[in-house]
Design a binder for these strands. Structure first.
Length: 261
DNA sequence: ATGGCGACCATAGGTCGA
């Protein structure tokens, strides 16, 4: 089963690129972030024509997450638990073929320090608690999305330029590490322990051409799903096309026959 | 230190992303 996470930076601006990608890679599951579309402006017909079902949580202007699946999935959760006043559309969970899939768009948090950084750290604490619940339920699960976290120095082209950035600050990395310590596996790093892997290159200064990137899109596997990990990677070629998102699709290949019972 | 790009919206420049 091929599971992809892809921050599209506007679902409607990226629709042609997305449909092309679905056709050539034929993923089973695609978690999308930054739809930048209200609920009723999601291009459902085009997604269905491409052969996918969709569950999504839109929002005007900003944020928005969706999960596309080959066959119908069951929605488990919409919105990250733990704060009833949080109105940002950043989290959705579905059950699909015995797997729990959480699609998330973690807050950016800049500028740091400040209220946006506080919101980010609070959101990460809520994610940690939700992660604990999922592990306690013992369901094979994957947390997939744009985490807006650079986990280590090897995940950024020039670490010294990012020390004060909300994506790389010690508090952010520590919060991500707490999630990992619960038992979640960073699938890309597990498959490629020493490689330089980036998933985002900004639009400025020819960042993609210079490979000045960062690794912030992640797929974290629960213990029962870890034996099923076959391969993982980044479809960098998508970032090199016309009118791209600033993120590239990032994926894991799972062998569901090897999921722990 | 700033701005560069691309997307959003009370469609013009301000705001946001990372």
């Amino acid at each position: 089963m091929l599971v992809v996470t892809y921050n599209v930076n506007s679902i409607n601006s990226r629709l042609d690129a997305l449909v092309q990608y679905l056709g050539e890679r034929a993923p089973d599951v695609v978690c999308l972030q930054e739809l930048k579309a209200p609920q009723d402006k999601f291009p459902l017909q085009a997604i269905q024509d491409a052969g996918y079902h969709a569950l999504w949580h839109g929002q005007k202007s900003w944020n928005g997450v969706a999960i596309l699946t080959r066959e119908p999935a069951q929605e488990v959760q919409r919105g990250l638990p733990g704060d009833d006043t949080d109105e940002q559309s950043r989290y959705i969970e579905v059950a699909y073929k015995g797997i729990l899939i959480a699609g998330l768009y973690l807050p950016n948090g800049n500028p740091a320090p400040g209220p946006k950084f506080d919101y980010k750290l609070a959101w990460m604490e809520r994610l940690r608690l939700r992660g604990l619940e999922l592990l306690a339920q013992g369901i094979p699960a994957v947390l997939a999305g744009d985490f807006n976290v650079i986990p280590t120095e090897r995940d950024v082209y020039k670490p010294e330029r990012w020390v004060d950035d909300a994506l790389f600050r010690p508090e952010t990395r520590a919060a991500f590490e707490r999630l990992i310590e619960q038992g979640w596996l960073d699938a890309l790093r597990a498959v490629h322990p020493d490689a330089t892997i980036y998933t985002f290159w900004d639009y400025f200064r020819n960042a993609f051409g210079r490979d000045a990137g960062i690794r912030i899109d992640h797929l974290l596997l629960s213990p029962k799903l870890q034996p099923a990990l076959k391969d993982a990677g980044v479809d960098k070629f998508v970032r090199g096309r016309e009118k791209p998102s600033d993120h590239a699709p990032t994926w894991v290949e799972l062998d569901l026959a090897k999921v722990t019972a």
